[in-house]
């Protein structure tokens, strides 16, 4: 009961202090707001860059060309054998087989030139094209290894094409881009933490007198720290309100404005739900933790008497 009373008084007093020291509180809140807006933009960018790279990686397809002299039954069996190979996608759509006749039909449909050339090769025996399997893999970095395994384990495989050289480069670049966005976001969060905690430090420095009086009337260190920590918490929460509103409404508006796609349909934006709620949660959490930590750090300094 006593603890509850102390705690509820601390919360009340911290709230009062925010308003009694309004100009300094406003400085802290503005600092939190501005830095969190930057963090929110960085997180949104990083999420979208990540989403884009993952999507491109997912679309990468490996094509297996089979020898000419296999039967249709054997063609189907090979499909099952490919599915069993490690790293090959396990969904039905991840391994799509096309017989040479299907390939011929598709090519004929795509251009008249092809149509005139391929017209006479109308039986499986005369068709010089190859039966193929289009494969999506689980881990794009292991693509070359998977290609080699397919070639080795299925003797009817003629060649495996997957854009050798290109894929490795793409993977390296995407990996770098993703790591870079993580580094930028983390660095920004650290800078934010530093900035916010310093602003709060100034706010509290101006209240050294208050801390001295608290000590004088017999407040223990914990008695002194708790209201300031709550105050930091409130400042953090108040500072994160605008960034949260901007992030949630702003991102949704942006998404709707571009219809979820940029540059035609080349880049698909991350859907607002649940993304904006995640971002709101992250911003609130950063505001709260950094606010409390900043206050705690600042008060601690004054308690070393």
């Amino acid at each position: 009961m006593k603890l509850f009373r102390i705690l509820s008084r601390n919360i009340r007093d911290s709230f009062k202090s925010v308003f009694r020291n309004f100009s300094l509180s406003l400085a802290s809140i503005s600092c939190i707001t501005i830095t969190l807006v930057v963090v929110a933009i960085a997180i949104a960018l990083s999420y979208n860059v990540n989403g884009f790279t993952r999507k491109v990686e997912k679309d990468v397809t490996m094509v297996v060309f089979l020898n000419e002299d296999i039967s249709e039954e054997r063609f189907k069996e090979i499909g099952d054998e490919i599915r069993k190979i490690d790293n090959v996608g396990k969904k039905e759509s991840d391994v799509v087989g096309k017989t040479k006749m299907q390939v011929r039909d598709e090519m004929m449909k795509s251009s008249e030139t092809y149509a005139s050339i391929l017209d006479k090769y109308d039986t499986r025996d005369t068709n010089f094209l190859k039966d193929t399997y289009h494969i999506k893999v689980e881990d794009i970095t292991k693509m070359s290894k998977t290609a080699k395994t397919i070639k080795k384990e299925i003797k009817e495989v003629d060649t495996v094409k997957y854009g050798e050289g290109m894929i490795e480069k793409l993977v390296t670049i995407f990996d770098f881009v993703r790591k870079a966005t993580y580094v930028v976001v983390i660095a920004l969060i650290l800078v934010t933490a530093f900035l916010i905690s310093n602003t709060i430090k100034i706010t509290i420095f101006s209240r050294k007198r208050e801390i001295d009086i608290m000590r004088l009337v017999g407040a223990s260190n914990i008695n002194i720290k708790i209201p300031f920590i709550f105050e930091g918490l409130f400042l953090g929460i108040m500072g994160s309100i605008i960034p949260i509103i901007l992030a949630t409404y702003g991102y949704s508006a942006l998404y709707n404005y571009f219809d979820g796609e940029l540059f035609g349909n080349f880049v698909t934006l991350v859907k607002p739900n649940p993304f904006i709620f995640n971002i709101a949660g992250i911003l609130l959490l950063i505001g709260m933790v950094v606010g409390m930590f900043g206050s705690w750090r600042a008060v601690r300094k004054h308690l070393k008497i």
Binding site: K2, L3, R9, D212, I213
Partner: peptide, 24 residues
């Protein structure tokens, strides 16, 4: 004097009791 300038007379005095959790 060392009073809290932004607190009333009552609050300044009550402050010394509040931190110990004395009932209101």
């Amino acid at each position: 004097f060392k009073l809290l300038p932004k607190a009333t007379v009552y609050e300044n005095v009550a402050f010394a009791l509040e931190i110990f959790g004395v009932p209101t």
